[in-house]
Nucleic acid binder design. Structure first.
Lengths: 189, 189
DNA sequence: CGTATTTCTTAACAAATGTTCAGTAGAAAG
DNA sequence: CTTTCTACTGAACATTTGTTAAGAAATACG
């Protein structure tokens, strides 16, 4: 049931079976229906979620009153509001299920307890954060080196699942272009 | 001498004085002249640097044969090639001093030794990575919500030091626009 | 100091993308 | 089933940005 999470932990750090079981026991299942929120703007984020299945969308209102889609969280990724989770401030972003989504959720308290009780798990936290950093580096590179059309084609090639499941307007804001232009690009090929 | 680094560590984690001193002793000073490399494309990155003063530029050749400037590292930030450092693969990026730059450098070996000997330092590694993640989130948001001109004005307002010290062509690639267009924007106001 | 080389600027034009608005299709609500 | 609303499409036009090419300015180098 938590085998996907278990495997990822085992692939990342060396940890004894009882310690691993204890770690896993701190993650509670949470099932979201389509459009349910994992986190709402203005609330404090005190959880980290592991996506077992489905998809989450991280977005926030921007200066112009539109929604900016920052990221889509796919299965086997961790998701939280980094800024809210680490600072304790109110979240400036929403995290919402795009599809029916199964999560395993750990509370901040439990995570900190875990870190102090089993120090090796800090390594897992650190490596996970480093992983996210690498993903973001790639996303930045996509903007630095590619036009809107090239970014669209990249998604088409590498994450076609997004095009199939995500409303076009969300995808446009994820690509940093207008919905009309995305519609135009989509028709073109 | 290492007071800036010392302070940042103390502000981030609770660590005893002897442990802190030990941690600090692992960082070796390294002074780079303008245009010296901290890391060259194709070499393995087995160090993390703390920028005491000066500025580093992280860049790589892109598909089109140009240079893409991924990031400028300012004083009091940590810098490494995340992908190379964590995977052990050859680096796909260059890290070069834009100005005379003073670094404190720690070797991967020493860092891993530190992590295992003083587990609390893992927390420092994790929080530092989370910090970088937040910086990157903001950089992505800048691309999602702002035109080239708005991005330029943002830098003008928040990091004017870059405009004063960095060659225009590097800045253009950092903003994801052509040097000609940056020149045009700069004249405009 | 003069020359070569690189970087920056400028302008004209081309291409990409945004904006506005109208229409259509499909989903949700009654 | 009909109505309403929302999301998507399409086209015309405006604006932004890229490209090309030439010249000016700055820098490196003998």
């Amino acid at each position: 049931m938590k085998s996907s999470l278990k495997q990822i932990i085992q692939n990342t750090i060396s940890i004894s079976t009882p310690e691993l079981d204890f770690m896993l026991s701190l993650f509670k299942p949470l099932n979201l229906k389509k459009d349910d929120y994992f986190l709402e703007f203005g609330k404090r984020c005190h959880q980290v979620a592991f996506v077992k299945s489905g998809m989450l969308r991280i977005y926030y209102p921007n200066d112009k009153g539109e929604e900016t889609t920052c990221y889509f969280s796919l299965p086997y990724e961790f998701v939280t509001s980094f800024s809210s989770f680490s600072t304790g401030n109110a979240s400036i972003e929403n995290i919402q299920a795009v599809l029916p989504t199964e999560l395993f959720v750990i509370e901040k308290n439990d995570l900190e307890m875990l870190y102090s009780k089993i120090p090796i798990t800090q390594e897992f936290g650190r490596k996970s954060a480093e992983n996210v950093t690498m993903l973001m580096e790639r996303r930045i590179a996509l903007f630095l080196n590619n036009s809107a059309e090239e970014r669209y084609k990249f998604i088409l090639k590498h994450h076609p699942i997004l095009l199939q499941t995500v409303p076009l307007q969300y995808l446009a804001s994820y690509l940093g272009i207008s919905p009309q232009h995305l519609s135009r690009l989509r028709k073109k090929k």
